[in-house]
């Protein structure tokens, strides 16, 4: 009885997980699919042909989204890792203030600061530029990087590094052979988060990118709001693909490395 219930729940999880995604495959091949038809009455590859044309700007959006997410992730690692390590392993004056400073952007709606930044960026000629968009994406990304990685560092400790150092390893070797391998699984998950946060940004990109820097969410949004569901479905699937790929590589860390996700428990 209990076992049966568990299987019902498990199958329910699978169905609910794929229910909003799987029908989009069918929608993306439909030409005419009106109520009450359960399957398209006319099939077509038109939506896919359309997204492959430069006219749809899907390719351009994909390239921009990818480039921005990669740049933002790398930069988040560069500034986030040292901060996370200091917060996790050292005590210093003003530490709790720093923790607060870095958490506030997670809590305060992104659009609030973006409107102010927009005003400044116009003056600095940073609106409508790739760099401007990357900068504004950093605001939510850095805090998440620090949050996850400080938990990883706290869990990882310094014992192994100390041992390596007493055995005569130089700082670079300690980093290369001890620290990095130790934090790598956690770093993967943290990078996945920053990548996905940047990948999903919509309104901040619209405002700072000014319609000149086109990302995938900006291509997708008008099709959903325009109820052009066949094309929206095709763009959605392209939008999802890299994200699911990222999950595929980090899924094990997500489930097994308790210190990584435990980071969210430290807020």
């Amino acid at each position: 009885m209990k076992k049966a219930l568990r299987w019902v729940i498990l199958i329910g999880i699978v169905i609910v997980s794929i229910a909003p995604i799987l029908p989009q495959f069918i929608w993306s091949f439909s030409h005419r699919w009106l109520f009450p038809a359960l399957l398209p009455t006319t099939w077509s590859t038109e939506p896919w042909e359309y997204v492959m044309t430069p006219s749809s700007r899907v390719g351009e959006g994909f390239a921009n989204s990818l480039a921005i997410a990669v740049v933002v992730s790398i930069f988040s690692i560069l500034v986030g890792l040292p901060a996370a390590r200091a917060l996790a392993l050292h005590d210093f004056r003003g530490k709790s203030a720093v923790e607060w400073l870095l958490m506030v952007p997670i809590i305060v709606p992104g659009i609030v600061a973006t409107m102010g930044i927009h005003q400044v960026f116009i003056r600095l000629n940073l609106t409508d530029t790739f760099i401007g968009v990357c900068l504004v994406h950093l605001i939510p990304c850095i805090p998440y990087m620090v949050l996850v990685m400080s938990s990883v560092f706290a869990n990882y400790g310094t014992d192994l590094e100390d041992t390596a150092r007493t055995l005569g390893a130089g700082p670079l070797n300690v980093l290369r052979y001890v620290t990095l391998p130790g934090i790598l699984p956690g770093l993967l998950v943290a990078t996945m988060f920053t990548f996905l946060i940047s990948w999903g940004q919509y309104i901040t990109t619209v405002l700072i990118g000014g319609g000149v820097i086109i990302t995938l969410p900006m291509v997708l949004f008008p099709f959903i709001s325009g109820t052009n569901y066949a094309t929206a479905a095709a763009v959605s699937l392209i939008f999802v693909a890299p994200a699911v790929l990222v999950l595929f590589f980090t899924s094990r860390q997500l489930g097994r490395e308790s210190s990584v996700m435990g980071g969210f428990g430290r807020l």
Partner: peptide, 17 residues
């Protein structure tokens, strides 16, 4: 975990359908 990496916009499109 499948829905974790899926952008909110895509989820919205799926829910609407």
């Amino acid at each position: 975990q499948l829905s974790i990496p899926i952008p909110h916009l895509v989820a919205a499109a799926g829910i609407v359908l």
